[in-house]
């Protein structure tokens, strides 16, 4: 296909991606170097005959508005935003390392820095939900493969719903059942015999319920993909393994799993990408006090009552994209190699 024809077919899609994905990356890099103007303050000294002098500081509203209009992007701040307390906080960390006693203290104080708190949950969520959902999905796939035919249709139907449901809505449905007034929340309180145990007060419980939600909504994807893969496991190999006396578990371990390997890698890649952006459940669970994620931090910088903190949101975005790059680029390079050797 000649270049010009390719470009004509590809054009609309390419322009859309360049304008609305590539350009915004440039835009966040630029924005992250600026910071909102501080308010213009006027200091005036009033002296009274007998009361002495007092200095008062007031905000010059019109000058502030004027300044914001002249330079709407804010003032140049260099990498300052990246290093402040709300982001990488290197100075605070040095301070913590200098003064803290014991590893526990270091960890808990670093955890109180917003970015590290978000990072801790994001990474934990990613690293727990991904394998849990994959294992659960594989178990469902193996079980469904065994049960009578008539069960299979309903299982696939009811499995697709938790996965395709709007994340905010699915998370709300679980949250209403899991919070202290819901049916499962009350059950949890009864089991632990602690009437005050609720997602509002207990951080571990919040994390656990969010991870339970993640597993619930992600397992079906693994199930569907693995179930399709199971239909393609070579029967000859299975029969040969049976004749050689392999038990059921051995057949799964040595025949089924190896033949699912490419699918496992595919599911792993997709799930890592999806779980790293975890965001809506934190809104639905109203969990920001106990668990935040990188996406949620960006959202809360943008969704403020007063001035939107573009600089802060942009810096967090750049850091997030940096993490993604470190995570994903090795896999991408592998895919690129496979594509160019003609396996795609």
């Amino acid at each position: 296909m000649p270049h010009s024809t390719f470009l004509r077919f590809m054009g609309p899609s390419l322009i859309a991606m360049l304008l609305f994905i590539a350009l915004p990356i440039v835009s966040i890099v630029v924005q992250s170097l600026y910071v909102e103007h501080p308010q213009v303050l006027i200091t005036s000294e009033t002296c009274q005959p007998f009361g002495g002098c007092t200095t008062t500081t007031t905000v010059d509203a019109s000058a502030t508005a004027q300044l914001r209009e002249d330079e709407p992007l804010g003032q140049f701040n260099g990498l300052g935003t990246y290093f402040d307390r709300n982001h990488l906080a290197f100075r605070e960390i040095r301070e913590i390392l200098r003064t803290a006693d014991g590893v526990g203290d270091v960890v808990s104080r670093i955890y109180n820095l917003p970015l590290y708190k978000a990072l801790a949950f994001t990474v934990t969520y990613c690293l727990l939900v991904t394998p849990l959902a994959m294992i659960l999905g594989l178990m469902i796939a193996l079980a469904v493969n065994t049960v009578p035919q008539m069960l299979k249709g309903p299982v696939i139907f009811f499995s697709l719903v938790p996965m395709l449901i709007t994340p905010l809505v699915g998370a709300l449905i679980l949250f209403w059942m899991l919070n202290s007034e819901g049916i499962l929340g009350a059950a949890i309180q009864n089991i632990f015999n602690d009437p005050n145990l609720s997602t509002r007060t207990s951080a571990p419980l919040t994390w656990a319920t969010l991870i339970a939600y993640g597993t619930w909504t992600n397992a079906p994807f693994s199930f569907i993909v693995f179930y399709a893969g199971l239909q393609a496991v070579p029967r000859d190999t299975l029969e040969a393994a049976m004749i050689d006396g392999a038990s059921r578990l051995e057949r799964i371990r040595y025949v089924v799993l190896p033949s699912l390997k490419p699918l496992i890698l595919f599911v792993l890649l997709v799930q890592l990408m999806d779980n790293f952006r975890v965001f809506e459940p934190i809104i639905s669970f109203n969990a920001a006090a106990n668990a935040t994620s990188l996406s949620f931090l960006i959202y809360s910088s943008l969704n403020t009552q007063t001035t939107q903190l573009f600089g802060s949101a942009a810096a967090t975005s750049v850091i997030t994209i940096g993490f993604i790059a470190v995570l994903i680029v090795p896999i991408l390079l592998r895919i690129a190699r496979e594509l160019s050797t003609g396996r795609g």
Binding site: S27, F279, S317
Partner: peptide, 23 residues
Amino acid sequence: ILVAALFFRAMPEITVVSGYLYP
């Protein structure tokens, strides 16, 4: 193009959205 698209797919949407709002 394909690999770039995959990288775009991997970025959380909100990182790009934060780039739009100001413009």
